[in-house]
Design a binder for these strands. Structure first.
Lengths: 240, 240
DNA sequence: ATCAAGCAGATTGTCGACAATCTAACAAGT
DNA sequence: ACTTGTTAGATTGTCGACAATCTGCTTGAT
């Protein structure tokens, strides 16, 4: 009997595929915040009945990237500057905790994986693939949460990462300029490889690694515009 | 125009009521960990079709208290000692963060609400209503998260609190002895009213306020038993 | 002109039935 | 005895249709 360990086979329900499709559409910004999801239309587009689609939407509502109002519809969550700020501040706390848990568990496999993900970010940056750049950067940051061996922390992080990805995608789509070429994750990776845990934690708490300041400024500017134009966000709601 | 603020009217979908019913059943321990939820049977019992029931179950899966295996069924999550430990250690981190955020926002209304919830715990304790005691204790601890004015933190706490409630309910049902009569929350409340934030945070991090040690010991004993009887947890799976 | 009542039209919520898949029991072969 | 096929039953996944609810427009009265 060989000691080969197989990976679990893929979920073969329509529901699971719909969840993946919708999540991707939302996180990449193809579905904009506030936008209403018309069940009939989406179901027809996907060649699927409404039952699995509705179940998928229920999952994404609980995942925090959709919101549902009975008999009115299901919408992509609206993003406010406060939401971003809240998410970011909690993120810092979780990072600090994850570093603490991960620290003594670091080994060669950890360092290798860290380099691998770091390299993926750099490659996406070189390719000017902004969507992938966001994705890989979050995966790089997610490693400490995966490695921390705390399932509840990991779940929490993944929920948070979904939103962060959405926020950044939103931001990237808004600004037309190319992404920064320099490597902003260099320090982060170096500290995680080092021997000073406190320094790594401090970096997580203090350093704006993911361009958050710019993201926040963008969100605030959006709200300025919205408050001037009365209920602009509502008016902008489109149907898919 | 009066400045009366109305509460949102109740959700009138079957789905929402089913979610509430199921959640209550799980958190009070009426549905045991590992137990399978038979859709047809539950739907008949609730006089509801499977569609809203399934949607409700999808929500609870994402909420983390149910788990689903395609074409096999949906089960109440299994509880391991590690799960409890993970949840508790994250809980401490979140508490510390919540205290930091709440601290400068404390006002008379906060203190009043703190006392009100504290009183509710004491009353449930006097009445020997263990289920309600757990519920009120978690509501007491939840106040700092509600007050912190960070929506992401609050969401995260609520997910965590669901699990904690489930764990404690499990424990309480197992031990036949009456609950402790003394008031273990006295110090917690006093520190939250005081002026030393660090002390309050230290208390949250160090003091075992919610009988966690005993809960952990119980969970570990369960696993001891399980490992002896091979796959006892699976064998014990009952249908509702 | 303003406002309430009421009437389509569209959309969400729910239902019952059917299809796909799993489980367990049994039979047959080695 | 042990594995491998087969089959019947039960359960989950999906579908199409109907009911409940909302939205916006029209109508009519003041």
């Amino acid at each position: 009997m060989g000691k080969l360990d197989f990976a679990p086979i893929a979920d073969t329900t329509r529901r699971a595929e719909i969840v993946a499709l919708l999540r991707r559409a939302i996180l990449t910004g193809q579905l904009e915040p506030g936008q209403k999801l018309n069940e009939l239309r989406i179901a027809e587009q996907m060649r699927v009945s409404r039952a699995p689609l509705r179940e998928a939407m229920r999952e994404l509502v609980q995942e925090g990237i959709l919101t549902s109002i009975p008999y009115a519809g299901t919408f992509v969550i609206d993003v406010t500057a406060k939401d971003i700020d809240d998410a970011y501040s909690l993120n810092k706390v979780l990072d600090e905790f994850a570093i603490e848990l991960t620290w003594r568990l670091r080994d060669q496999r950890f360092f290798d994986e860290l380099d691998r993900r770091h390299e993926a970010v750099k490659q996406a940056t070189r390719n000017l693939d902004t969507t992938r750049q966001i994705e890989t950067a979050l995966q790089l940051h997610g490693l400490i949460h995966e490695w921390a061996d705390n399932s509840v922390l990991l779940e929490t992080w993944q929920r948070l990462a979904s939103r962060l990805q959405m926020y950044f995608a939103l931001h990237q789509r808004a600004r037309k300029e190319p992404v920064p070429a320099e490597d902003i994750h260099e320090t982060y990776v170096r500290l995680l490889k080092g021997s000073d845990m406190r320094a790594a934690q401090r970096h997580a708490r203090e350093h704006i690694d993911l361009d958050f300041e710019e993201l926040l400024a963008y969100a605030r500017s959006l709200e300025q515009r919205a408050s001037k134009g009365a209920k602009a966000t509502v008016a902008n709601r489109q149907q898919i």
